[in-house]
């Protein structure tokens, strides 16, 4: 047996783990090698001193230690949170619904900003007024457009024309935000014609004819028919 192997087996020998043959070899080397014998003796001496110095183990306060352990491992009562009252699927559904509603509201806001909504559009009161106004205006325009006789061409008194003009201004104010460019142009033409009517010199036949020509030029009888009270487009305004 070599010294290195001997040293490898010292602890196994101390543990009584060597086979008899190996144990005999170990003992033989111990007798024949003074250095290994010295090493073995020194280890035994140190080990004996350590064992002697191990000392007794005092008795601690077992109960106090157990109380601390028990307190540390005891399950702590969990405070119930508000969301524990509802099942998770209900919370998820409510969250999804809220998200859906907010999404729709946001999309509506993006597609139809409040400023885009014209005063007349979708306003039943405005549509009703426009229908009434055009129904009043249509016969007047037709009468002037077809008037050839100056005497018969002044059926309307100035006061009535002024009232129509005033109503027109109100209508124009309401239609300012409208997307109907045709309606706005029509109202502009009507305004021009009514102003001519207010300032018309009814004693002069050529003035009356010129007004009739203006009405025809602007195409007001045709346009008023297009925007007549029964027309669906007007109802949508």
């Amino acid at each position: 047996m070599k010294c290195k192997e001997f040293r490898d087996l010292i602890f196994s020998c101390q543990d009584g783990m060597l086979a008899p043959v190996k144990n005999a070899e170990f003992a033989g080397h111990l007798r024949s090698c003074p250095a290994c014998a010295e090493e073995f003796a020194a280890l035994a001496k140190t080990g004996a001193l350590l064992a002697e110095g191990a000392g007794d183990v005092p008795v601690p306060d077992w109960d106090r230690s157990w109380r601390r352990i028990a307190a540390a491992v005891a399950p702590r009562p969990r405070r119930r949170a508000a969301w524990d009252l509802f099942p998770r699927w209900a919370l998820a559904a409510a969250g999804f619904l809220a998200f859906f509603i907010l999404g729709i509201a946001f999309a509506r806001l993006q597609l139809f900003p409040p400023g885009d909504s014209p005063a007349g559009t979708g306003d039943p009161a405005f549509a009703f007024t426009a229908r009434d106004y055009f129904s009043l205006l249509q016969p007047v325009m037709a009468e002037y457009a077809n008037a050839q006789d100056p005497g018969a061409a002044a059926p309307e008194d100035v006061q009535r024309v002024r009232r129509l003009l005033n109503d027109l201004y109100l209508l124009k104010m309401r239609a300012e935000g409208s997307r109907e460019r045709g309606l706005q142009l029509l109202l502009g033409d009507i305004e021009l014609v009514l102003l001519e009517m207010v300032h018309l010199d009814r004693s002069r036949p050529e003035s009356v004819r010129r007004l009739g020509a203006l009405i025809q030029e602007k195409g007001l009888p045709m346009k008023l028919r297009v925007f007549n009270p029964d027309n669906r487009k007007l109802t949508q305004i």
């Binding site: 000392g55 183990v57 601690p60 306060d61 106090r64 491992v73």
Partner: peptide
């Protein structure tokens, strides 16, 4: 376990701490 702890640290309070830590870790 206390014997191991006491002989390792050589004082009672520390050995008690080790004893308690050991069981707390084990049970948890």
């Amino acid at each position: 376990i206390f014997s191991l702890a006491y002989r390792y640290v050589r004082n009672i309070p520390d050995a008690e701490d080790i004893l308690q830590d050991t069981f707390i870790k084990a049970f948890r």
